[in-house]
Every structure is written in structure tokens, then in C-alpha cells.
């Protein structure tokens, strides 16, 4: 039994429509395993998502998360997982921002479910979503001083005194 199935026709249709609408210099596409992933610059992300929702029937935002690739020019990124329920088709749309200007437009006007997802991304990575109704931290305490999921923040509690680093090799 194959590990996954590929919906080649729908992938091709989506890619063609996106390239037609936004141009090849704005949209880069790649198939990773069974899903097409599109990378879009941050100025176009809201238009791309609105286009996907309205014209290509991606009515369901499955999830959204942030990522941190230290060393790249645009270090922070967000991934949107879109699902067209009627066609049974899933894609991922990514956009990257730099550490200094980590702002993106909100997607809550397109899908209300993006509300808490964007708050979680802000809480973990520090990406600010402009236009969000309630942009504050969600899982950590409101006055938490850093953005913990970034690669430079340590995992362990910095104040613990009972574990000896020499033994644990950290």
C-alpha cells in the first residue's frame, strides 16, 4: 500500500491559477511528499490567501504555525495549511519575514479560526499580525520576556539549580 496519494490534476490546476494571477516571480512552488507548497512574499500573502479561499475553494484553514530558520536572510516564517473540503485537496502556503520587520497581515477576516493560531505564532515567534482583534500572548504569561520557540531560547528553565550540565551534556 503506498504511503500517500498525490492529486496531480488539482495540484496542477492550483499552481497554474496561482502563477497566472500572481506571476512566477511572486510564487515559488514545490511538491514535498504529497503536498504542493507555495512560498509567497509577505506583501502578497493576504491576497494569495483570499484568492485561494474565494476562487479555488479552499474553505478550511486547517492550521497555521511559525518557523525560525536562523541563518537565512528572512529568518521567521509562517506556514498556512489549507484544505479544500469539496475537492479533498490540501496545500501549504509559506511566507517569510525578517527578524527586524516581523509583521504580517492577519487572516482572521478570511477565516475566524486564525485568531488563536496567530496569537500562538506571536507568542512563540514574535511575528506581529496587523489588524488582529486581540494581539497578545495566549499560552505563556502576558509579561513573558522572550519568544520561546525561537532557536536561540533555551528549552530548560533557566533558574533550575538541581541539574548539573556537565552530567547532562547540555
Amino acid at each position: 500500500m503506498p504511503a500517500f496519494t498525490i492529486k496531480a490534476e488539482r495540484d496542477q490546476l492550483t499552481t497554474d491559477r496561482l502563477l497566472e494571477r500572481f506571476g512566477a516571480d511572486a510564487v515559488t512552488h514545490e511538491r514535498l511528499y504529497d503536498t504542493m507548497c507555495y512560498v509567497v512574499p509577505k506583501e502578497k500573502i493576504h491576497d494569495v490567501l483570499a484568492f485561494l479561499r474565494d476562487e479555488l475553494d479552499f474553505n478550511f484553514l486547517t492550521s497555521m504555525c511559525g518557523m525560525h530558520f536562523p541563518g537565512l536572510e528572512l529568518e521567521l516564517g509562517t506556514v498556512y495549511f489549507l484544505h479544500s473540503m469539496r475537492n479533498g485537496h490540501r496545500i501549504r502556503v509559506k511566507t517569510f519575514v525578517s527578524l527586524k520587520e516581523a509583521t504580517l497581515p492577519t487572516a482572521t477576516d478570511l477565516w475566524p479560526t486564525a485568531n488563536w493560531m496567530e496569537r500562538e505564532t506571536y507568542d512563540f515567534f514574535g511575528i506581529h499580525f496587523s489588524g488582529h482583534p486581540n494581539m497578545k500572548r495566549i499560552l505563556n504569561m502576558d509579561d513573558f520576556p522572550a519568544f520561546p520557540m525561537r532557536k536561540d531560547y533555551p528549552l530548560e528553565d533557566p533558574t533550575r539549580e538541581d541539574k548539573n550540565d556537565t552530567f547532562f551534556g547540555r
Partner: peptide
């Protein structure tokens, strides 16, 4: 959970 958010 040896992490930053859990009370040890």
C-alpha cells in the same frame, strides 16, 4: 517536561 514553562 523539563521546559521553561513548567514548574519543576
Amino acid at each position: 517536561f523539563d521546559s521553561y514553562s513548567v514548574l519543576q
